[in-house]
Amino acid sequence: MRLFEFFRSKSSGTKSSDGGGGGQSADKARERLQLVLAHERLDRWSADYVPVLQKEILAAIAKHIPIDQEKVAVKLERGADMSTLEVNIELPAPQEFTKKTGPRLAAGAT
């Protein structure tokens, strides 16, 4: 029995040492797949809306504020319960533009 255990622990020991903690990485794989596929299946039926959305948001803002198209960052973060669409637009300095919000605008969407 000891001998048996020796071989068993030896073989499992070498496996986990290269797995970075080994453990339940399969659970992580399942969760990641469930999440990404849920989103991809939705996207399959709708066109890639992010570039269009970005263009329309910028057009709406540009009507009121002069903005530099180069200073725009769009980030989409997909979560299980909620996704956030973050649009960061760098606005001109306050002396050129005095009314309304601070230096940055953030738009959120699910």
Binding site: S12, K15, G22, G23, S25, A26, R30, L33, Q34
Partner: peptide
């Protein structure tokens, strides 16, 4: 069994 590979049931469900 060691939790290192996706389970068949999980793949089928996904």
């Amino acid at each position: 069994n060691k939790g290192e590979m996706l389970r068949i049931e999980d793949i089928l469900e996904i």
